[in-house]
Nucleic acid binder design. Structure first.
Lengths: 341, 341
DNA sequence: CTAAATCCTTTACGCGCGTAAATTTTTGAT
DNA sequence: ATCAAAAATTTACGCGCGTAAAGGATTTAG
C-alpha cells in the first residue's frame, strides 16, 4: 500500500495503464468494462488511493447518486430510527443518502427542500411535517424531483406513499383492549401536526361502534412537537376533571402516552392491568423508548423494516424509469403487549 | 415574480445587466460589490429564480462552505439534540451543515469520515464513538480536515476539544445526593463505549473520598449502544444480589438510569426521595426523556447551548485562519432536581 | 483461421463557475 | 472641472470529469 496521492483521473489513468474514458466508465459502472481491465484498475486502486472528485462528477451528470432523506423531527427517536434504516438501504443500493430534518418547522422544511433541489438528487424520501407543511412548496418540489412520501400521507403527492396502516393500528389495539378489560377512551391532541392522528381517531370511533361500545374522545390543547409535555398537562387536566369515562386510555401516539404516564405517576395513579391498578394506558407507534417506561408501554409498533424496504424499492423503481400510477401502501403494525395495558 | 428559469450565471448576468465575474463576486460575498450593483442583482433575483450550481462552485474552491457534523448515534436523542443546535449555528454563520451518524459502529464511522473527506468540507464537528473508534482513521482524517472534537475527548486530536465537564457533573450531583440522603453508589457499564464514563467514575471515587464516604462502584456487563437494556438487566442483577450498599444510586448516564428505573419498577421497588420510597436513582446528561420517566429523573444536564456555541465558534476561528494551540474546554452542567432522588 | 463483435484508445468538446490581468467606467474628494 | 482611487467589464484560462466520435486492438464465434 504505497498510497500515493493522485490529483485527478488523468493521473490515475496513466498509472493504471488504462485510458481516462475507460477509467471513467469503470467508476460509473465497474461491470461495464472487461474483467481484465477491471482487474488492472482495481489493482491500481489498491496501490494508490484515488476517488473521483464528486463535484466534477455531479456537474456533468443529469442525475446525481444522491438520495435526500427528510424527516420532520430528528430529535424524535422514531424518525431517527426510520431514517437510519432508510439510509442503510440507500447505501446498499449504491447511493449516497443525505439526511435532513425540518426540526418541526414549516419554514425549515421549505428551506431544506430548497437546498435539496440544488443538490440535484436522484430521488428524495420525504416525511412531511403534516398539517403545517407549506403544501404549495411540497408540490413544487415534487414536480422537480422524484419524491416518495412516507410516514405522513399527502394525497396524490409525489410518486407514491408508503406508511403504516393507521386504521389497522388503532383497530387492532382497540380490539385487544376491549377483549382484556374496559373499552378504551381515546386520548389525542386537539390540533395534531400529523394527519395520521385523524385516521387513528376515526378508526377508534369506527372500531368502538363495530364492537358495540360507546366512543369517548378526549382531545387536549397544545401546539407543536413537545408532545410528552402536552400529554402530561392534558393528562392532568383530563384526570382531574374525570374526562376519562373508563379506566382504559388509548393514546393517539406513544409520546402522548409517555406524557400521560408521567401525569398518572404525579397523581399517584397506578398504571397497569393488575387488579390493584387504577388505569390502563396504551400507545401507538412502538417508540424506541416505550419498552422502558414504568410500566412498560403496551403499544403497536411500526414495521420499520417493511416500511423502509417498500419505500426505498418504490423510489428506486421510479428512478430507474418505471412509471407507475400514484399508489398508497400501508403496512400493518405488530401489537407489543406489555404491562401498561 | 416572473420566475423565469435561468440555466447558468452567464444568463443571469445578462438579464441583470451585470458582468458575470461581478455576479460571481456577489454570490461569494454580497457586500463586496457596490450597493447600487448589489441592488440591481437582487432585483433580478426577485424576478428570476437562480442559484449558482453548487457542484461547479465547489469544484473551483479550495474550501467549500460545507460543515460536516458527525455523531456516534443519531437515534440517541442527546446526540440528535446537540446535532440540531450545531446545525442551526452553522446555518446562521452562512455554512451548509451536513449531518452524519456512525450508527454506533466503528466501521460506519470510518466510512463516514471517508465520504466526508470527499466533500472537501471547510470543517468538521466530530463526536467520536469513543473506545471502539479506529484511532488511526481519526488521526488521518484530522490531518486532512480542520476538525473540532466534541462530547467525547480524544487527547490532542484535531483542533481542540469542547465538551461537558464530567468531573464537575459527577462531583456536583454526588454532593447533592450526599447532602440529601445516603451517599450514592455508582452504577456503570463495565466496558463503556464512551471515555466520559471513566472520568465520571473517577470523579465519583474522588468526591466520595473528599466527602468522607466509602465509594461503591457497581459495574455491569454489556456491550454496545442498547444502554437502557444493559441498565435494566444489570439493575436486576445488582438488586437481586444486593450489590447496592446504600439506598442511593448515581448512574453513569441517563440511559443507564432509565434502564435501572425499569428494573426497579419490575421488582416493585418504589423510587424517589419520599419516606416510603425504597431507592433513590439519579442520572447524568439531562437526556430529553429524563423529565418524563416515572418518577422524573434527577440528573445533571449538559449545557447544550454553551457547548455548541463554544464548539462552533472555535471551529470557525480555525477555518478563518486563526492558529491556536490544542485546547480542551469543558462546560459545567446544571443540576435538575426532580423526584427520583 | 477469418470475420464479426466487442472493447479500448485517442481526440475533442462542454459543463458552470472561480479567478486573474488588463482595461474602462464610475465614484468621491479636491 | 480634475484626478486618483475604487469598482466594474472584458477577455481568457483552468478545474476534473462526462461523453461522443472514429479508429485500432482484442476477443469471440463460426
Amino acid at each position: 500500500m504505497t498510497k500515493t496521492k493522485i490529483r485527478n483521473m488523468e493521473e490515475f489513468a496513466a498509472i493504471s495503464g488504462i485510458s481516462r474514458p475507460t477509467v471513467s466508465k469503470y467508476f460509473n459502472d465497474p461491470s461495464s468494462v472487461r474483467p481484465k481491465t477491471r482487474e488492472r484498475i482495481e489493482a491500481a486502486l489498491r496501490e494508490h488511493t484515488y476517488r473521483p472528485n464528486i463535484y466534477a462528477v455531479n456537474q456533468n451528470r443529469k442525475l446525481t447518486k444522491t438520495i435526500g432523506i427528510v424527516v420532520p423531527l430528528l430529535v424524535d427517536p422514531y424518525f431517527a430510527e426510520i431514517a437510519r434504516t432508510l439510509e442503510e438501504r440507500c447505501i446498499r443500493a449504491g447511493y449516497r443518502p443525505t439526511l435532513f430534518s425540518a426540526h418541526g418547522s414549516a419554514a425549515h422544511e421549505a428551506e431544506v427542500l430548497d437546498n435539496l433541489r440544488a443538490l440535484k438528487p436522484a430521488g428524495v424520501l420525504l416525511a412531511p411535517l403534516g398539517r403545517t407543511s407549506d403544501r404549495a412548496a411540497l408540490e413544487a418540489f415534487c414536480r422537480d424531483v422524484p419524491t416518495l412520501i412516507f410516514d405522513s400521507s399527502v394525497d396524490e403527492l409525489g410518486l407514491a406513499f408508503v406508511g403504516s396502516d393507521n386504521v389497522q393500528f388503532t383497530t387492532h389495539i382497540a380490539d385487544y383492549l376491549c377483549r382484556t378489560g374496559e373499552p378504551p377512551c381515546f386520548f389525542e391532541m386537539k390540533t395534531p401536526a400529523n394527519p395520521n392522528a385523524h385516521r387513528r381517531r376515526q378508526a377508534y370511533i369506527n372500531a368502538m361502534e363495530s364492537f358495540g361500545h360507546t366512543s369517548h374522545v378526549v382531545s387536549v390543547d397544545g401546539e407543536g412537537w413537545g408532545i410528552e409535555e402536552i400529554g402530561r398537562l392534558g393528562g392532568h387536566d383530563a384526570l382531574a376533571r374525570g374526562r376519562f369515562a373508563t379506566n382504559t386510555v388509548l393514546c393517539s401516539n406513544d409520546r402522548l402516552a409517555i406524557g400521560l404516564l408521567t401525569a398518572c405517576y404525579e397523581r399517584g395513579l397506578r398504571v397497569g392491568r393488575g387488579p390493584d391498578d387504577a388505569i390502563r394506558v396504551a400507545g401507538q407507534d412502538g417508540h424506541p423508548h416505550s419498552r422502558f417506561t414504568c410500566p412498560p408501554l403496551t403499544t403497536i409498533s411500526h414495521d420499520y423494516d417493511t416500511v423502509s424496504a417498500t419505500a426505498v424499492s418504490a423510489l428506486f423503481r421510479a428512478i430507474e424509469g418505471s412509471v407507475e400510477p400514484w399508489k398508497s401502501t400501508r403496512i400493518e403494525g405488530k401489537l407489543l403487549m406489555r404491562d401498561s395495558a
